[in-house]
Write a protein that binds this DNA or RNA. Structure first.
Lengths: 200, 200
DNA sequence: TTAAATACTGTATATAATTACAGTTATGAA
DNA sequence: TTCATAACTGTAATTATATACAGTATTTAA
């Protein structure tokens, strides 16, 4: 229900930019003028389409009564991960942090609250929030969020091959975790791309 | 030039809330209705006053042509601190991070980029950004940003009295710093209230 | 004390803006 | 083929909106 046509995207982007730049939305005539429409009704038609597709709200009768539908709930913060189910399951979401501006440079899919002290030598302390990107390439040396037999853990990926994956805690009191992905259930939830610590 | 009267503040706050809530600014009539004015001209007068005081932009002729003047440049990120001068001097500002939403719970006056490894055992690594609050009470045990004879340093405040201040690095390779505030120039730039790390 | 600013009422009007209705043309799916 | 959707032109009417002008009363700064 949210695949806009090329033209609709152009109109939608223009409206967003206008709101950003002027502080208020454009009128039908203003849209028409910018796109070279000879009738404000062309803009009206586009607005109706964008409303129908759920990306705009239109308040009838109000001048400039256009607003952007924001489905952006914020970036979820994952506390304890319940066994089974996906990490992003509703019951795992502790709260959400507005994603209004990307303070961290990579895309952040979710924040994970750190349990335990296995990563303190990498400067990752208990209760820190690590910013996780789900799609960033999993590679040697990066800090990964791994799931081993339904247990979620944050470790440095030391080596990876088809029958041996070595996960290294950054705490000399702990030993490396060696997993054979053919025998055990191993998956990667993502890569650590940042960290937030909130002193309170 | 920016001291609004009580009434003007009410109007100004209302306009901000309307923009936040509806996505577009109110009309004169809408303002008048909410405040019980019997004439839209009362709203017009207020808008003119708010424009004159520099907190609003009004685009003449445009319906709802009201926008908030934003002086908010974002929270400064301080890189290297040049000797002398205040920490927030222009030349020290590396960039600014939009303060659209307070991710961290305390007020953040600026971010300071960490140099060196003196705090690694507190999970503060080189190049991390520590969030600094200038006004939070300086107390024993908190991580403070101190200035000793024009040198800025981040340490844990171990003890404080009129003739001895002990600053403790969180790295066993370093020794405590002892300062006599009567003999040396010591000031506190603020308290660490958070941390941002951006893996890149 | 005197002018300027604040905070309104009341009226009126030009124009800004929404939006319906009637069409045209092109494209892709049933 | 035929119908729905997309992307417009063109016209026009209702209503939404900005905003000027003329007042009044109160408060505040010079």
């Amino acid at each position: 229900m949210n695949d806009l046509t090329t033209r609709q995207s152009e109109i939608f982007e223009f409206i967003k930019k206008e709101i950003e730049f002027n502080g208020y939305p454009p009128t039908r005539s203003e849209i028409a003028k910018v796109f070279g429409f000879k009738s404000p009704n062309a803009a009206e038609d586009h607005l109706k389409a964008l409303k129908k597709k759920g990306v705009l709200n239109i308040v009838s009768g109000a001048s400039r009564g256009i607003s952007i539908v924001k489905e952006d709930l914020g970036i979820p913060v994952i506390g304890l991960v319940s066994a089974g189910g996906p990490i992003l399951a509703q019951e795992n979401i502790e709260k959400r942090i507005p994603s209004t501006q990307n303070i961290l440079s990579h895309g952040v899919d979710f924040y994970l609250r750190v349990k335990g002290d296995s990563m303190i030598e990498a400067g990752i302390l208990e209760n820190d929030l690590i910013a996780v990107n789900k799609k960033a390439q999993i590679k040697k040396g990066s800090i990964v969020i791994a799931r081993i037999n339904d247990e979620v853990t944050v470790k440095t990926l030391k080596s990876i091959s088809s029958d041996l994956v070595v996960l290294q805690p950054e705490n000399s009191n702990y030993s490396n975790i060696e997993v054979n992905p053919k025998k055990e259930n191993l998956s990667f939830e993502g890569t650590c791309v940042g960290l937030l610590r909130d002193f309170c």
